[in-house]
């Protein structure tokens, strides 16, 4: 299934589902941090070619990311990605301090980001569950801090592994005055999209 095969109605539905799901996730992040985040309208991306256009140039810039496998009625991968400077904002808010560079990154900082992802993805899935009555559960998020392109390409390749083409729901959230930007991807398995559309009745 590609976006060209996805009807306009279904693309709108995916955007709306992404919006509601991430609304829940970002509300949870706001509760955690006391900061109000702005949510962009989700995009539905088609990744059926080998060319992946990276959303966060420069491609070699340092990025912090998490990914967690989602099992159940809407299988896929949920990933949150933050440019290094944005991760530093999160660390400062949540721990009062932040690693200056990669050499200062330790397990504590990693677990903070993992926990942020855990809570956000958990709330994303709760919102989806309320909409669809799906049963969903997630693995603990895995962590990485690396070149933006290395993180994104690894995620894409993994998602493409079992299928020829891929639909991704992408949303950005930001804090206008704080140079904070976050990126969320949900990469559903192709087969599980049909299930989602049936659940919401389209």
């Amino acid at each position: 299934m590609t976006t060209t095969e996805l009807s306009a109605l279904r693309q709108d539905a995916l955007r709306e589902i992404g919006n509601i799901g991430l609304g829940g996730a970002v509300t949870a992040l706001s509760d955690m941090t006391g900061v109000l985040f702005t949510l962009e309208v989700p995009e539905v991306l088609e990744l059926n070619t080998t060319q992946v256009h990276f959303v966060f140039p420069p491609e070699e810039s340092l990025m912090v990311g998490t990914v967690a496998r989602v099992e159940g009625d809407w299988r896929g991968e949920g990933a949150f990605l933050f440019p290094w400077e944005s991760a530093q904002v999160l660390w400062r808010i949540l721990t009062g301090t932040a690693p200056a560079d990669l050499s200062e990154l330790n397990e504590l900082y990693e677990s903070v980001i993992r926990e942020v992802a855990n809570i956000m993805l958990g709330n994303f899935l709760t919102a989806i569950t309320q909409m669809t009555q799906f049963e969903l559960h997630m693995e603990p998020p895995a962590f990485a801090a690396d070149m933006a392109a290395a993180l994104l390409s690894s995620l894409m390749v993994e998602a493409l592994h079992d299928q020829r083409e891929l639909i991704a729901i992408e949303t950005r959230f930001s804090v206008p005055d704080q140079h904070f930007e976050g990126l969320f991807f949900y990469l559903p398995e192709t087969g599980s999209l049909q299930k989602l559309f049936e659940a919401v009745g389209i």
Binding site: T50, Q51, V52, F54, E59, E60, D146, M147, A148, A149, A150, L151, L152, S153, S154, M156, V157, E158
Partner: peptide
């Protein structure tokens, strides 16, 4: 060379890849 691409150079030139993760 982007993901899935092939590049060739003869005699001179520079070839490279950016941001290889699992690739």
């Amino acid at each position: 060379a982007g993901m899935g691409e092939i590049k060739v150079a003869r005699g001179a030139g520079v070839l490279g890849c950016i941001g290889l993760g699992s690739c």
